[in-house]
Design a binder for these strands. Sequence first.
RNA 1: GGAAGUUUAGCUCAGUUGGGAGAGCACCUGCCUUACAAGCAGGGGGUCAUAGGUUCGAACCCUAUAACUUCCACCA
Length: 921
Amino acid sequence: MILLRKNKNNISYDAGGFIDNGRKKVYNKNNRFFRKDWNNVRENFFMKEMQTTYNPAEFEDRIYAQWVKKGCFTAKIDPQKVPFTVMMPPPNITGQLHMGHAMDETMQDIVVRFKRMQGYSVLWQPGTDHASLATEHKIVEKLREEGTTKEELGREEFLRRAYEWKDRYGGKIVGQLKKLGSSCDWSRIAFTMDETCSRAVREAFFQLYQKGLIYRGSRIINWCPDCKTALSDEEVAYSEDAGHFWYFNYPVEGSEEFITIATTRPETMLGDTAVAVHPGDERYAHLVGKTLVLPFIGRKIPVVADEYVDPEFGTGAVKITPAHDPNDFEVGLRNRLPMIRILNDDGTVNEEGGQFAGLDRYEARKRIVEGMKELGLLVKIENHVHNVGHCHRCNATIEPLVSKQWFVKMAPLAKPAIDAVVKNKTKFTPDRFAKIYYNWLENIRDWCISRQLWWGHRIPVWYCDDCGAEVCSRENVTVCPKCGSARVRQDEDCLDTWFSSALWPFSTLGWPEETPEYRYFYPTDVLVTGYDIIPFWVMRMMFSGIRYTGKVPFRDVLIHGLVRDEQGRKMSKSLGNGINPLEIIAKYGADSLRLSLVTGVAPGNDTRFTETKVEASRNFINKIWNATRFVLMNAKGVDIPKTIERAKLTPADRWIISRLMATIREVTLSLQKYDLGIAADKITSFAWDDFCDWYIELSKPALYGTDPERKRQTLAVLLFVLTDLMKLLHPFAPFVTEEIYGYLPNTEGLIITADYPRYDPKLAYREEAKAFEGVIGLIKAVRAMKVSVNCPPSKKVRLFLVTEARRLISLNRGCILRLAGASEIEFVESGTSVKEKTVSQVTDIAHIFVPLGELVDLDAERARLSKELDRITGEIARADGKLSNQNFIAKAPKKLVDDEFAKREKYLEMKKKIEQQLASL
RNA sequence: GGAAGUUUAGCUCAGUUGGGAGAGCACCUGCCUUACAAGCAGGGGGUCAUAGGUUCGAACCCUAUAACUUCCACCA
C-alpha cells in the first residue's frame, strides 16, 4: 500500500489500481481513451490511455523533445509572414536560474507562443552572458578554496578554467530553460563571448573610439579592493552603515591655532592636499591662504575657499583628498591641488602613507585615530550613520580613487535614447517605468567600461613600446602601424560585461554584418525584463542600438517585478530563502509553476511566491485534465461532426459558445496589452466556472439521453469549446495543453503550431446567452432554496413555476431537472395557490414554488422571505435614489438610465410577489 | 534632498477609458450527484488608508495627510 494523498478529510491508499480519490471503484477497462497517432511522430507512445489524475512528469519531457525534434521553435525567414522577435535576457553563467528567471522566461514564452499561434514568424533568441566580474569572482573564490590564485595560474590557464565553468553552468541553465518549456530557438543559442558577439564588441568599441566617444583618462572611479577592479556607478550598491565622525585638529603653520575638520574616513587624511572652507565663512576668513601642516606626513597644505563647502555642516572646514573622493576631486581641479593616491589596489596603504604604509585601510584608520589622540589632535568622536558604497558582487566597501580607465562619453548617447522613448518609438509597459528610465539617463555620468579582469572582452587597444602609439583596431595588432615595431602589447583590461550585453539585440543577429536575419528580425518587438536592470541593461541597449544600428532595439519593454518569498523578502542566497524552480517543477509540473507565476500579478508589481498558489494552479490543470477525460469518455465510439451546425445548437450550446467568444476576445486583447495576469484569469474562470461547472453539467442530459444525433451535436460543441480552450491556455500551460490536444479527435498536428482562436461574430449569440443566464439563475435559486431548508441535495423536488418564459424553460427542461435536482416542472398561473406547504423564490425569469412538505418550517420561511424582501427593498431604494436625481437622468448615458428604470420595474415586480407569498403563509 | 510604488475580505493579491466591490487560500454548512475530494453545491466576511475636491456618479481623476516599500542623490 502506498500513501497517495492526505488531506483534511480522507487518506487514500493505492489498492492495486482499484482506488480513485478515496472511493473504491472498479477500474473499468472499457473506459479507455486512446491518443491519436501523431503521424508516427510520437514514437514509443501509441495508444496510451489518459490517467485519472494529471501527472505532468509523465509527459513534459517527452513533449518538449517532440517540439524540438519537429523544429517548432526554429525561426524562419518567411517574407510571407510578419516577424516577431524577442531577445531573451541572457542569464549569467554564474549559477542556476532562480524564481525571478522563471517568471521572466514564462512571460516571454507566453508572448512568444501567442504570437506564433497568431501566425507571426517568431524568433526567440536564447543565450547566456559571460558575466565578466560575477563569474570571475566565483572562479577566484573557488581557486581560493583550492589554495591557489588566478595570478599563480596565469591568464591562459585561468581562461581555460573559465570556459570550463561556462560549459558546466551554461549547460545547466539550458536544461532549466527546457524544463520550464521555453520555446526559444536553440539552433541559434548565443553566448556574449562567442565569435559573433566578440566581433560586434570590437566594432562597437572601434566606432566609438573613432568618434572620440571612448576615451582613456584618470578620473575618480569606484574601486573594489576585493575584486581589484574598477566598477561603474551602477555596480555600486549603497547601504546605510553605522560609522563615526572623527574631529581632528590640523595645526596652522607658524601659529598656535588649529583648524578643526570632521571626517568619516580618517585614513584618507594621508592624501589630503588642502582644507577647504566656504568663501563667506567669517570664522575661517583669516585662515584662507594660510598653510596647515598635515600631521604624520608633515606635508604643507593650503586652506582654500570653495563654494562646495557647506558652512552649516560639521565644522564648516573640510579636508580635501582629491584622489579619494569625487567631490574633493572637483575641488582639487578647481584649486589646482595635487592628487595623492594613498591606497594600493588591494586596499592597503601605499608608500605615500609614511609610517602607515603597508597597513590595511581599516588598520590604518585605527592607528591614525590612535596617533591623533596621542598627538592631542583628536577633538571628539561622534556616532554617524552614512551611506557607504559596496561592490554589488562581493559586498566589499568601495574606495573611490583616481585611476586611469576607459570611459564612454554618455551625454551624446543619452540624448537620443531619451528622445526615442519621448517620441514613443519604444514604449514601456507599465509606462511609469519610462520615468525611471529618464531619471537615469538625464543624470548619467560617463561610463567607466574598463575592468581589471581577465574574463571578458579584452579592450581592443594596443600600445607600442617603441613609439608609444595607441592603436584601436578591429583586428589583432602585431605590428605598430606607426613605426612598424613588433613591440606592441594589447591593453591588459577587459570591458564591462554590460558593454557586450548592450549589443545583444543585434550582435546575436550578426551585426555589423547585414545578415538576412538582421534585416528580417531587427529591430526586435518586445523586451521582457525586471525593473531592477533598467539602468544596467535596458538603457544601455537603447543608446547602443540607436547609435550603432540607427534604430531602437525594441518597440516594447515589458517590465515585471521581483519574485519575493512568502514574507515579502527578496529571495537571496544569504537569507537562504530562495526556491529552486526545478524543485517546484518536479513536484507540481512546469505548467503549474508557470500559471502560478503570472496569475494575479499586475505588470511591474512584485509578487510573493507561495506553494499554495502553485497548488491552486495544479488543481486547475487537474480540473482541465478531468474535463478532457469526461469529453473523451463520452466521445468513445461516436463519430463526432467536424463542425458544429449552428441550426442545431441548444440554448445551452449557444450560451457556452457565446461565453467562449467573449473569452477569446478578452484574452486576445489582454495579451496584446501584455496584461498576462488578466488573460490568465479570464481563461481560468471560463474554463472552470463556465465550461466545467456549467456546460459539462448541462451537456449530461444529452450525452446520457437516447437521441444519438443530439449526443453527436453536443459532443461537437464540447469538443469545439475544449479545443479552443486548450489553444487559449497553451501559451500559459504549454505541456498539458499539447498533451491533451494529442488526445482530442478532429485535431491535426501540434497545438504549438495551431491557429490561435478567432472571435467569430456569427457565434457571439449575445441575446441567446443573456436569456440563458435566466435559466442559470433559476437553477441557482432552486439549489439555494433547498440548502436553506436543509433539504438533502439528493432529494428530488417538484417545481411549480409562475413564469412568462415557459418556452425557454421547456427547451431547457432536462438541464433544469438535472442541475436543480428536480423531479418535475409544472407551470402554474399567477394567483393559483399550491395546496402543499411551499417555499418560494423570485428570479429574473420565474417565481418558483417548491413543495417541501414537513421540511418547511413556516417561521424559518417567513424569516427567509423577509430577509429577501429587505434586500429587494434596498435595491428599489437604490434605483429610486438614482432615478429621482434629475442630473442623473439628464447627464448619464441613456442606456444606463434605461437600464436603471428596467431594474426598478423588475424589483418592484419581485417585491410584489414576495409580499403575496408572505401574506399567504 | 529627489523620484516611483503600495495601502481593497482573516492572508496573498486582481480590479482593463469613472457607471451596482472580485479571485485564490482560509473559514462555516451540506454533499462519495458514474470527469474531477487536486472535487461539487450553498454561505459568511470589505467605511476600497484618512481628509477634502471634481463629477449626475469615485476603489479608480485632482489636492493634502499618514504608514510602509523601493530606487537615485548625498554634507566631508
